[in-house]
Design a protein around this nucleic acid. Sequence first.
DNA 1: CTTTGGATCGTCT
DNA 2: GACGATCCAAAGG
Length: 215
Amino acid sequence: MILVAYPSGSPDVSCRVSFEERPTVVAPWLLNKVLVRTLPDGTTLSGRIVEVEAYGGSDDPASHAYRGPTKRNRTMFGPGGCLYVYFTYGMHHCANVVCCPEGVAGAVLLRAVAPIRGLEEMFTRRPGARRPTDLASGPGRLCQAMGVDRDLDGADLLTAGSGLALEDDGTPPPGMPGNSPRVGVGAAHQIAWRWWVPGDRNVSKKGLTRSAGGA
DNA sequence: CTTTGGATCGTCT
DNA sequence: GACGATCCAAAGG
């Protein structure tokens, strides 16, 4: 039982217990945190998280974990603060931050980041991208730009040396984030489990729709 | 600008 | 054997 998740009222990205919260709590909190990728050759790529979605476990029909653990989704049942990467549509990878206590499935899909470091490398990895907003404005694009694939599944985002890390540069999450139903989820189970940074151009196209955020 | 359909393969039934 | 937590190019307004 978690008694105190956010002792100071301001979640600490380096604190494991923060990731034992539910995905609907962790998701909006991740907005404006920085995702840092260290490539095998030492190159650093980074971007500010501007769009996320929450996925649950046995309570969420839209979640990979809805019908229990499988070889593919087992990372979702592991400890919070780790990365869950899956491959879909025969060509795209998507990255998630695992949350909830170990044994309980839950994750936050990283849908978009605003590139900060390594733009040149990202353009190389994403031929066809013209503008910086083409680099990581979507879950598949984000993974392609930052070199994230299934090899990083299970990586610990709170430990240096795992290749991918979460950092807090002091920018707080938006006080009133954009909020809408999730993208690509059947209308039958639509609830507003998607959040974004209002006004950020890197938010994926399908989402500058109505919200509580405004510009 | 919006809409539409094809690509492509690991995973689970 | 069917179907994606998607992306992109092409075509139409």
